[in-house]
């Protein structure tokens, strides 16, 4: 079955289509959340909530929102960022790291947070720091093009082209 058909069925509240989407994207969505909250248990909990939220708002998705995964990604990012801002989280983790997701690969201290470091390393091998930064801002932290250009101190147009070449490199690494 094509992705579009599955999404359509999901929108008409077919639990089986929803289960299919969950199996397709749960790992990725939970992964994004984990890079933000950096705690497996919290990430899993938020991840479940994100899927329930998607189910309850299924009728709000349409092609003007972009890809289905992109829509889910957006819900996930917002939910994870909300969690970071919440009181309970602040009490648990007073020092929020603003590190980039790839720092995880080098992180040896964290125990609450497991990552496929080997795979991550192989993916980002030979990616320059500026690439890692831009991918992190746009895909994991949810920065807009303009926000990313301000953060990285580069023209808005450059965000678009640099991101393109960085993702291309990532794709090359994937196939190697």
């Amino acid at each position: 079955m094509q992705l579009e058909q599955i999404v359509e069925r999901f929108q008409s509240k077919d639990p089986r289509a929803f289960e299919k989407l969950h199996s397709m994207y749960a790992e990725n969505i939970c992964g994004v959340i984990n890079t933000i909250v950096r705690n497996d248990l919290i990430a899993e909990e938020i991840c479940q909530d994100v899927f329930v939220k998607a189910w309850n708002n299924a009728d709000k998705y349409n092609t003007s929102k972009g890809r289905f995964f992109t829509w889910m990604l957006n819900i996930a990012r917002n939910a994870a960022i909300d969690e970071l801002r919440s009181k309970s989280h602040k009490q648990q983790k007073k020092n929020l790291s603003v590190e980039y997701f790839v720092d995880i690969a080098e992180d040896t201290k964290t125990t609450e947070f497991t990552v496929d470091k080997k795979r991550l390393k192989s993916l980002i091998i030979n990616l320059k720091e500026k690439c890692i930064k831009i991918i992190d801002l746009l895909y994991f932290k949810g920065y807009t093009q303009k926000e990313a250009s301000e953060e990285l101190n580069i023209p808005v147009g450059t965000v678009k082209t640099r991101n393109r070449s960085c993702i291309s490199q990532l794709r090359e690494n994937m196939s190697n």
Binding site: I29, C30, I104, L120, I135
Partner: peptide
Amino acid sequence: SIENAILELTKTASPKTTYNF
């Protein structure tokens, strides 16, 4: 292809658990 790259990347950070529906 672009989506797959992002999926691949995000997957590396996912908690190692079984994703039960």
